[in-house]
């Protein structure tokens, strides 16, 4: 039982990261019908920016008040990556808005390659390590399962951000504008909504969440490199499809489920570690055969 509980905690932590990143994919798809392949790389950019700011803070000889400093760094990095997201949309996607669906996808792949290589050239191709011991290494033993403070923080922050996004999209005027834009750009414009501004807003929210995920991955695992975004991006994209792409609760559910699938595959199937990814993608295929629109459906109209 304690093993099952431990695996559930493992799976939830992995899933929380997938969910945070999946939100970026799903919101962009909802509004633009574009799969933003560069989103995983924005997440990676967040991890590197966080590393830079934390190193600067520690380099300045300040060690007290690290918790407050981390909070400020979190916000700064989220803003910086959001700006990168907006620039990306202006430069790579907006000029192609009327060019059909294939051209922006190719453009997204180009942005992805650009970001990866830029980070590789700036930070070097080797693994980079986050400083150790920023978050106190406290752990609890709950019914035989080990839980660390960082795991709890990861889950709390992820759920808080996801909750905040859900509230924003569903219970504010801007959120209503996003949902209206997702339904139909032209009609939204007729209602007096500035569609370009809404698209920019989506490219602020998604990358900011991804950046938060990036710093948490850095703090939690301690090891980052420039292709980080590729692996996580693929998994998060899968999670978004699993939950129903274009659907915000779907991305959250999809991320958590994918994390738990993987964990159960590695934890309970013989040779499951080696076959983990194959098993989770096989499950994805099964679910899509039964429910082609994903678990919660991809009808953007009401759900986003």
């Amino acid at each position: 039982m304690d093993i099952l509980l431990q695996q559930a905690i493992n799976g939830l932590t992995i899933g929380a990261f997938y969910a945070l990143i999946a939100l970026g994919y799903t919101m962009v798809y909802g509004v633009l019908k574009l799969i933003n392949f560069a989103h995983g790389d924005l997440f990676m950019l967040g991890a590197y920016m966080g590393l830079t700011l934390i190193s600067m803070y520690l380099g300045a000889g300040m060690t007290s008040g690290i918790i407050w400093a981390l909070l400020v760094i979190f916000i700064l990095v989220m803003i910086a990556v959001a700006i990168a997201g907006v620039i990306m949309e202006r430069v790579a996607y907006r000029p192609l808005r009327r060019a059909g669906r294939l051209a922006p996808v190719v453009s997204a792949l180009g942005v992805s390659i650009f970001l990866e290589n830029a980070v590789m050239i700036i930070y070097g191709p080797r693994y980079r390590m986050y400083p150790k011991g920023l978050i106190p290494e406290i752990q609890w033993n709950i019914a035989g399962a080990q839980v660390t403070l960082m795991q709890v923080l990861t889950l709390v922050i992820s759920f808080f951000l996801m909750g905040a996004l859900y509230y924003f999209v569903h219970y504010t005027r801007l959120g209503t504008a996003i949902r209206a834009t997702a339904i139909d750009h032209d009609v939204a414009r007729l209602m007096g909504i500035n569609v370009d501004a809404i698209v920019s807003l989506v490219f602020i929210l998604g990358p900011a969440l991804g950046a938060a995920g990036g710093i948490m991955v850095g703090l939690y695992y301690g090891r980052i490199n420039f292709v980080l975004g590729w692996g996580y991006g693929l998994k998060a994209f899968t999670a978004a499809i699993l939950g129903g792409i274009g659907n915000i609760p779907g991305a959250m559910v999809g991320g958590m489920l994918l994390g738990i699938f993987e964990t159960l595959a590695a934890g309970y199937i013989p040779q499951g570690g080696a076959w983990k990814d194959a098993i989770s993608f096989f499950l994805l295929i099964l679910i899509l055969i039964v429910r082609p629109t994903g678990l919660l459906g991809e009808r953007v109209v009401e759900k986003l």
Partner: peptide, 17 residues
């Protein structure tokens, strides 16, 4: 006797096992 995926960040499932 099992394998991990190189480059991954989370090995807790297999470690728990």
């Amino acid at each position: 006797f099992d394998a991990i995926t190189p480059g991954e960040l989370d090995f807790t499932p297999i470690l728990t096992r």
